[in-house]
């Protein structure tokens, strides 16, 4: 396979990284908001979060993306395929990340929250300044594995017309009749990106401060 083709794949992998990074970060923010709803104890909020998490974890991402692509225009919302794909990927990972954060929030020692109450923290302050940092620190390894899952899942946005690594590989495979080389090269690039994410995760894991909460 020529360097020309490989460099096209590399360029397209930029889109893969961009889409995945956006989904992970936006998904994390939504997951924190959903965790706040879950911790509020309000029945309606609990029900909403439970259905959200169950739906987005229970339906294949491919079906979610296809549904979103037909639903938004029917509701009169017209967005580019990239924006729609970003929304779809974000909602899906938000559901998984909410579930991952559940354990982290459960492990926050109640004594810390009581102390914060004593010190006059408002519930919002104690959520944002105590519960969220501890839960994030405790669930950091699952965040890294979620990032790898999303990198791989981002290949599905090719189906709805976003030109990322997989889509570029199929386009080139169709025009050059070299599917073996192109899909294998795409796979190697995914593998390399995942290795880098794993290494960054391990490096960051060692550098993050401890929380003082004993590991369970």
């Amino acid at each position: 396979m020529s360097w020309k083709l490989f460099s096209l794949l590399l360029q397209a992998s930029g889109m893969t990284i961009l889409v995945s990074a956006f989904a992970i970060v936006a998904g994390l923010i939504i997951a924190i908001a959903l965790s706040a709803l879950r911790l509020s104890g309000n029945r309606l909020a609990l029900g909403f979060v439970a259905v959200f998490v169950s739906f987005f974890r229970g339906v294949p991402l491919l079906v979610q993306l296809l549904l979103l692509f037909n639903l938004l225009p029917a509701l009169g919302i017209s967005l580019s395929s990239l924006s729609t794909a970003l929304i779809g990927l974000t909602l899906c990972t938000a559901a998984y990340q909410t579930e991952n954060l559940r354990g982290g929030f459960a492990a926050v020692p109640p004594g810390l929250i009581e102390s914060a109450d004593m010190l006059g923290f408002t519930p919002v302050q104690s959520f944002l300044r105590i519960k969220v940092p501890i839960a994030l620190r405790l669930t950091f390894p699952t965040l890294i594995s979620e990032a790898i899952l999303i990198l791989k899942a981002s290949s599905l946005v090719s189906v709805v017309g976003v030109i990322e690594l997989t889509k570029m590989a199929s386009n080139l495979a169709a025009s050059t009749f070299m599917p073996v080389e192109l899909y294998a090269a795409a796979g190697l690039i995914y593998l390399a990106i995942n290795q880098v994410v794993t290494l960054i995760g391990r490096f960051a894991e060692g550098r993050l401060p401890g929380t003082g909460v004993p590991a369970r």
């Binding site: 090719s158 997989t166 796979g187």
Partner: peptide
């Protein structure tokens, strides 16, 4: 480490070439 989609594309579209 690679997406399932890429694996099945390689198998189904690339398979006949090998």
């Amino acid at each position: 480490g690679t997406p399932f989609l890429v694996q099945i594309f390689l198998l189904y579209f690339g398979g006949p070439f090998i």
